[in-house]
Simulated assay, not measured.
Amino acid sequence: MKLPLIPTAFVLTAMACMIGLGVWQLQRKAEKEALLDRYVQAATMPPVAWPETPDMDLLFRRATGFCLEPVSWRAIAGQNRAGDVGWRHIAACRTGGGEGPGMQVVMGWSQSVNSPEGWDGGEVTGIITLDPEFGLRLVSEEPVAGLQAVALPSPEDIPNNHLLYAIQWFFFAAAAGIIYALALRRRLRELA
């Protein structure tokens, strides 16, 4: 029996792509491990001043910033240190003279979406983490009055699923090969 040229080429090309994606995921796994190691090391380094411009090299570093005044508040879903689900309260702070992006500060956690009252700003010490909207945010170690302590960010909370993705791509490639082999075998039986 002669192999059908176009379907065989298609399946082999697809399998090669899937294997390539699996190898790429293994490379990404190593890159992610290096990044997570860098974050773990950052957590042990001395505190820095809140940066005037977002600097991703400061993720998971302790920092101190000064909030001249909270300009606005927003609440996003989050957990307190006990693991309860509720709302993290983030203050958008003015940091001075209009320079820089200001400072986004997670000032605590509560069951209510309503913004806290009575905090007029001041020095805040916490851990730098990502803010999808503003680049960076500071997660305060101490809550303001009326709020509970929010769960602190940790590099351990960042998943590294690249090995599972690689296994998945290799499985898809093997499955495609097996299915095609079974289809060829069935066709051979029908022709015999």
Rank of each mutant, 00 (worst) to 15 (best):
A174F: 01
W169F: 13
V11G: 03
G122N: 09
V113S: 11
M56G: 10
C93V: 15
L68F: 14
A181T: 01
P155Y: 12
G96K: 09
L138R: 02
A149N: 03
Y180H: 06
A14C: 07
C17I: 10
A34T: 14
M103D: 09
R74N: 09
F171C: 10
G122Q: 08
A77P: 05
E141L: 05
P155G: 08
P132Y: 00
G78K: 07
V113H: 08
T64W: 07
R62L: 12
A145I: 13
A43D: 07
V48I: 08
E33A: 14
G83A: 06
V105L: 09
S154G: 09
L136D: 01
R81D: 12
R137F: 00
T44Y: 04
K32L: 15
A174D: 02
A14G: 07
V124L: 14
Y180R: 03
A166P: 10
K29H: 14
T8A: 13
R185F: 03
A49L: 13
L164R: 15
E69Q: 14
E31F: 09
E156D: 14
G98I: 15
P46F: 02
L152S: 06
N114D: 14
C17D: 05
F10D: 02
T8H: 03
Q25K: 04
G100R: 03
L26D: 02
E117R: 15
C17R: 06
F10H: 02
Q111I: 14
L152R: 04
N160P: 00
A91M: 04
L36K: 08
G65P: 14
G108N: 14
E99F: 10
P155M: 13
R28W: 07
V40E: 06
A49I: 13
M15E: 05
P54R: 08
A176N: 02
T95E: 12
R38S: 15
K32P: 00
V144S: 15
D37H: 11
L36N: 02
L36Y: 01
L130E: 06
E142G: 04
F171M: 11
N80W: 09
L3F: 02
A166V: 03
P159M: 07
F60V: 11
M107F: 07
W109M: 01
K32H: 15
S115Y: 10
G102N: 07
V40S: 03
P54S: 11
P143W: 10
R94I: 11
V105D: 02
N160S: 08
Y165C: 12
R74H: 11
W50S: 11
N160E: 07
N161A: 09
L164I: 10
L184V: 01
I179H: 02
M56Q: 12
P54N: 10
A49M: 10
F170N: 00
G97A: 14
